[in-house]
């Protein structure tokens, strides 16, 4: 807890998120890694897009940019290119980074700009009320797919690793693992992408039969396992690739 508050705008609490949302845990992990790596407002900028996760930036005591929907990556690239000394983080959701910002993700990973992209993947458009996103698994019932989603979920790992970039997957339940992954990404001097599986009970879990956010977290505990020295991560495996 010590130091955790130093980068948080406490005056702005409570957050806009639902109780039990995984976004808070992502902020916690991020701040703790920043603390231990001496990242502060003198050398770090955080950029986000639109959506629930997009509001993250407003709670941090850093220069933070809340951009347009899907445009977090190009803005971050502009900042990093104009001032290469800065550490630039992008924190945004799956809808923002993979759907509307998918093209930017593809090309940023090709250009290998040194930005750290943290994609909080709750598998749904949470802020707009539970529509199917590109990361929604097949056959899932959402408000826009009442008969079940007919498409496969997007393979972000393939997109990012096709250019030999850093890719890591973690969940909001495995907080220590998540911190380790963020730390690992800082060692990497290229484009880094960290997919954080998160929970959205009102938008997603409810329809799958969960009764609370807690149950969803316990499900992450059961489902996901940590893997080391893998060349490819399966859907329920956590770890990193480089």
């Amino acid at each position: 807890m010590q130091g955790y508050l130093s980068l948080l705008k406490i005056k702005r609490l409570p957050t806009t998120w639902c109780p039990g949302c995984g976004n808070g845990l992502v902020i916690k992990a991020l701040i703790q890694v920043m603390e231990s790596n001496n990242l502060n407002k003198k050398n770090t900028v955080i950029v986000s897009g639109i959506g629930c996760v997009g509001r993250t930036t407003g709670y941090l005591k850093l220069d933070s940019i809340h951009t347009l929907h899907g445009r977090a990556i190009p803005v971050a690239e502009g900042i990093k290119t104009a001032n290469p000394k800065l550490n630039v983080f992008v924190v945004s959701g799956d809808g923002d980074l993979l759907a509307i910002g998918g093209n930017h993700l593809l090309h940023a990973s090709r250009r290998k700009t040194n930005i750290k992209v943290i994609c909080v993947n709750n598998r749904i458009y949470g802020m707009t009320g539970g529509q199917a996103s590109p990361a929604t698994p097949k056959k899932t019932v959402t408000t826009t797919t009442p008969k079940g989603n007919e498409f496969e979920e997007i393979n972000t790992q393939a997109i990012v690793t096709s250019n030999k970039n850093f890719f890591a997957r973690s969940t909001v339940f495995h907080l220590d693992h998540l911190k380790k992954m963020i730390k690992k990404s800082l060692e990497n001097k290229d484009f880094s992408f960290i997919e954080v599986i998160s929970n959205c009970y009102p938008g997603y879990g409810k329809k799958l039969g969960f009764t609370s956010n807690y149950e969803m977290l316990m499900d992450f505990k059961k489902k996901f396992e940590n893997q080391k020295n893998k060349s490819i991560l399966k859907k329920n495996e956590l770890g990193f690739l480089k």
Binding site: V47, I65, T67, L68, R71, P74, V75, A76, E77, G78, I79, K80, T81, A82, N83, L86, N103, H104, L106, H107
Partner: peptide, 26 residues
Amino acid sequence: IKLMQMEDEIASINCAIGASLSGKKA
């Protein structure tokens, strides 16, 4: 001049905004 050829015009103007935030005339 530092040039970034982007994937589309949307990215072009957004990275110019980013560079402007970074203190460059963009």
